[in-house]
């Protein structure tokens, strides 16, 4: 077998440098955008912290030090290096809670993206390939979801199924579903009439094969960009729900829930309020930087140069 392949390689000519692969070209475009690279590095650090929170965090997220209630961060007057970012209203280490909180927030973001992306791809492809009532029902249902403002819809869903971390994920998944369905349907419809799809059909490919193996890979670029946007929005909305007391419940170190219980200490212990919010901002910002970079690299029309 090896002997069969060798001449083929020679025939291509060793002098001609092969064009960069799709991924290499993508990465070259992506890393040209310095802001996106910074975002990627920040995000990498956050993911690292989230994954290894139980090794990195100095204390447990719910461990209370009753003698160290509302200790300011180490750089402020009265701070101690034992609690670098200070302690909260019941003497829990802020740094440890923020680290465990990173785990929760990123988990929410990723869970929402995976759930809404898979459901959205399935529904969007069905809507594109089954014109008639399945398409009409799916698209009308999406219109209904879209006409209720996102956070309000999430609030109503959570109010019905009860406030918890899991239900937060369910609610936000439903809120973001229409974006994927519309996106997938629109790009699948435009790909559907292309020659390569007709060729595949003539070659005897079944509808399912055409949907998932022929058309879907060619619709992925906008879906990936949408996914980056969804992660950051999902993290923001989950934090907002937590803040309103409708998301993750205390003593969970979810950043929004941390902010909710800290509100009354705005004057006396402002770090309890500023730190979780800053954590949310940095996380969302780094994901958005990566998202912008992805969009520029994947969508030639939006490219800066």
């Amino acid at each position: 077998m090896a002997a069969d392949k060798a001449p083929a390689v020679n025939a291509a000519g060793p002098a001609v440098k092969p064009p960069p692969g799709a991924f290499a070209a993508f990465f070259r475009d992506f890393s040209e955008n310095r802001a996106a690279l910074v975002g990627l590095i920040l995000l990498g650090v956050l993911v690292f912290i989230a994954v290894f929170a139980n090794f990195l965090a100095p204390y447990g997220p719910s461990e209370q030090f009753r003698d160290f209630v509302r200790v300011p961060p180490m750089w402020a007057e009265g701070g101690t290096s034992a609690f670098p970012l200070g302690t909260d209203e019941v003497g829990r280490d802020m740094l440890s809670r923020l680290m465990y909180g990173a785990r929760l927030s990123l988990f929410i973001g990723i869970a929402v993206v995976i759930a809404s992306m898979f459901a959205g791809i399935a529904l969007g492809l069905v809507a594109a390939f089954a014109p008639g009532w399945p398409s009409i029902i799916i698209m009308r249902a999406m219109d209904v979801i879209l006409s209720v403002p996102s956070l309000l819809l999430a609030i109503v869903i959570v109010a019905i199924i009860g406030p918890s971390l899991t239900n937060t994920i369910v609610a936000i998944t439903i809120v973001y579903l229409p974006n994927y369905v519309r996106l997938v349907r629109a790009s699948a419809l435009s790909e559907k009439s292309r020659d390569y799809v007709i060729a595949a059909r003539v070659a005897g490919a079944g509808t399912l094969r055409i949907m998932f193996l022929t058309v879907l890979p060619n619709c992925m670029a906008p879906i990936i960009v949408q996914a980056a946007l969804t992660i950051s929005n999902a993290i923001l909305e989950a934090a907002a729900l937590g803040f309103l007391g409708l998301g993750a419940q205390p003593p969970s170190p979810e950043w929004g829930a941390m902010l909710a219980s800290a509100r009354e200490f705005l004057q006396s212990a402002s770090w309890i309020v500023t730190e979780p919010g800053l954590a949310i901002l940095i996380t969302v910002l780094s994901i958005n930087l990566v998202g912008d970079g992805l969009r520029d690299a994947l969508d030639p029309k939006m490219r800066r140069s």
Binding site: F243, V273, G277
Partner: peptide
């Protein structure tokens, strides 16, 4: 840069920060 930061802002926290600075 400022626009992207604003776009990424958890506004409930932003409100608390502004209260802390301008009101308190």
């Amino acid at each position: 840069g400022v626009a992207l930061t604003g776009f990424s802002m958890p506004i409930f926290w932003w409100g608390l920060l502004l209260i802390l600075l301008f009101s308190v």
